[in-house]
């Protein structure tokens, strides 16, 4: 595909939707809310290819997937003919699960990970939290550990079907 100067920002978002999180491969980085902005910047223009700047934010400070995500964005955009790509990592506003799309939450559920319940973190959020088991949909579940297989998840167990499962923490 040859990129001319008419490519829209919307088309770039569509390209980015193909890139998935390395640790949760059913979720795209757009569904996860990692991509914050896309700019076609005149100051980045070189030769004929148009310059593009993608703003991303990490889920957690130490998330080891960020370098890989940056590289994957570059690779994908290069394949679409962009030659001048800048990835900018931004910290503020801090990433929150509120930015996860509804489509993303559905995909998580189907994948066997309970999606975040509620909006933004309040300090008591674990006390009266009702997390639905992604297998049997029972709400009779309990927290096993506040930390799960990755920084963004907690470990739960269903009291009805007894299946342990990951819960994507509301953050």
């Amino acid at each position: 595909m040859v990129v001319d100067n008419k490519i829209s920002v919307g088309e770039i978002w569509q390209i980015l939707e193909k890139i998935t999180d390395p640790e949760i491969p059913i979720l795209s980085i757009v569904d996860l809310g990692i991509v914050r902005d896309v700019k076609i910047s005149p100051s980045l223009l070189v030769e004929k290819g148009q310059g593009v700047e993608v703003f991303i934010t990490s889920t957690y400070s130490g998330c080891p997937a960020m370098d890989m995500i940056s590289m994957n964005i570059k690779m994908e955009l290069l394949q679409h003919g962009f030659t001048n790509i800048k990835i900018t990592q931004q910290l503020s506003p801090a990433w929150t699960t509120d930015w996860m799309t509804e489509r993303g939450k559905e995909k998580l559920q189907q994948y066997g990970i309970a999606p975040p319940v509620g909006k933004v973190m309040d300090q008591q959020f674990l006390d009266d939290l009702k997390v639905e088991c992604p297998q049997c949909h029972s709400k009779n579940t309990k927290l096993l550990s506040e930390f799960g297989s990755t920084a963004c998840k907690a470990l739960f167990q269903c009291q009805d079907c007894k299946e342990p499962f990951d819960y994507f923490k509301c953050h």
């Binding site: 400070s61 130490g62 550990s145 506040e146 920084a151």
Partner: peptide, 20 residues
């Protein structure tokens, strides 16, 4: 195991913060 994972996750957060 759960606490091993918990403390490793906390370590990861802290090292991530230090990188910033």
């Amino acid at each position: 195991l759960e606490q091993d994972i918990a403390i490793s996750n906390i370590a990861l957060d802290l090292i991530g913060q230090s990188r910033n």
